[in-house]
Design a protein around this nucleic acid. Structure first.
Lengths: 239, 239
DNA sequence: TCCGGCGATTGATCTGCATCAACAACATCT
DNA sequence: AGATGTTGTTGATGCAGATCAATCGCCGGA
């Protein structure tokens, strides 16, 4: 595992034309407040594999993902791993009220983040209902995703899990304007396995099966959905 | 499945000495605001098995649990079920921002709730940062629980699942002042199975095994933890 | 060009839990 | 008391996915 490499950041100069604006926490803010919030933040960059923060460490910052993908995961003492989610541009990391990080976060490929010192962010947000409501909205969306994922982990077959994952990933990408024919999957098979409660072998076999069945096409650059209705049916748990 | 029975409620007269005060959403409010909020609410009661609301229905109310236990669950089209959690006194049900319920909720035994019309609650909360921060706190706690449950569903053995469930249940009960030697388990085996991603038979067998091993004692009125350290070790994923 | 490492794939075998089945314990109704 | 339904337990068997193992493709470095 590579060691975290934190490049010194600068105050964010250009929140106004930030590509993650619109889906990020800051979508709630007008120009003036945006500038104030920007004063608190710095841009930081992490190289592939770097750990942004680790579970049970004291949380001193919040983050908003600007570019790239992260895996968010929890480890058991014997090193079993559950990836609780992947973070994409616009996702907010860290929850006020809890002193420590509830999970670890690694960069998958290069990642840039807006970093906010926890204290000053909390003070800033304290009396800004717009921002607070936005945080509730993001937390609620996250919670809904978590509950949907519990259904997947508890009650679905390997094939349904993979189909569900692909459909969900497609929807998230298109939600941030990254939809397209070829759907990039920046994470490795092991990450997918640890996200879906499977092993790499089962993930691999299931990808192969879906490809044999003409549901998907697997490329080096990503996956193409050939039979979307079939994939969506599997994802919904039909058949 | 029994039909939901909603007894007509009354405005809450006695929030001041409500037994769920202190852990509920209203813990954030001072006397004056509490009275104002009480004006919006009514007490409602549901009998055992009644459905408080169903997944994908338009959410017209929020609820705060006053007494009793609920199962919160999602169904797949073929009737596979995943119980995403159990709600206890103080728990808040419903998230602003999402138009529909994300899951269904049934009473386990008799339940009483504070019901808030969604619109008026939202208006009330809109510019009350204290209340908004409290909602973030509750949502965050819920999210943390959901993530911990993903680890359980994705990466743990049946025995670990049961031990984890018992330890978690003990902690939640003691968190609302209901700790005690005998831990009541109001939900049925099928509920536990659908919560942990197991079948009733496996749940039953695992309870039997834990009892044979002297970890727990199973009574009609609940469960006694005989070997708490062992249960906690299993719960933590050690051994 | 060869080598070594990493990720992915595929095959063979094993196993934890699901499934199928029978029965026990207990409550409710007639 | 006997009949019926509901919940829980236990046993026998089956199977989806884990585990163990071999191989392949690819990339980067010597």
């Amino acid at each position: 595992m590579k060691i975290s490499v934190l490049r010194e950041g600068t105050h964010c100069q250009s929140c106004h034309d930030c590509t993650a604006r619109g889906f990020a926490i800051c979508a709630a803010l007008d120009k003036t407040k945006l500038r104030e919030l920007a004063q608190l933040s710095r841009h930081v960059r992490f190289e592939s594999g770097a750990t942004v923060f680790a579970q049970a460490n004291i949380a001193t910052s919040f983050f908003s993902v600007h570019a790239g993908t992260l895996r968010l995961y929890k480890l058991l003492p014997d090193s079993r791993r559950q990836i609780v989610g992947f973070a994409l541009p616009g996702d907010f990391l860290g929850l006020p009220g809890l002193p420590q990080h509830e999970f670890s976060a690694d960069a998958i490929g290069r990642v840039t983040l807006c970093q906010f010192p926890k204290e000053s962010f909390a003070t800033f947000a304290e009396n800004r209902p717009q921002l607070l409501r936005r945080m509730i909205e993001l937390a609620g969306r996250e919670l809904a995703r978590a509950q949907e994922h519990m259904v997947l982990l508890g009650r679905r077959s390997a094939e349904e899990k993979i189909a569900s994952f692909l459909i969900g990933w497609r929807d998230r990408l298109s939600g941030i304007g990254r939809g397209g024919e070829i759907m990039p999957l920046p994470m490795k098979r092991l990450d997918i396995a640890d996200h879906l409660g499977l092993t790499i072998e089962t993930v691999s076999r299931t990808f192969s099966k879906l490809e044999r069945d003409g549901v998907i096409q697997s490329l080096a650059s990503g996956v193409v959905l050939l039979d979307t209705p079939r994939a969506e049916a599997l994802s919904a748990g039909i058949s």
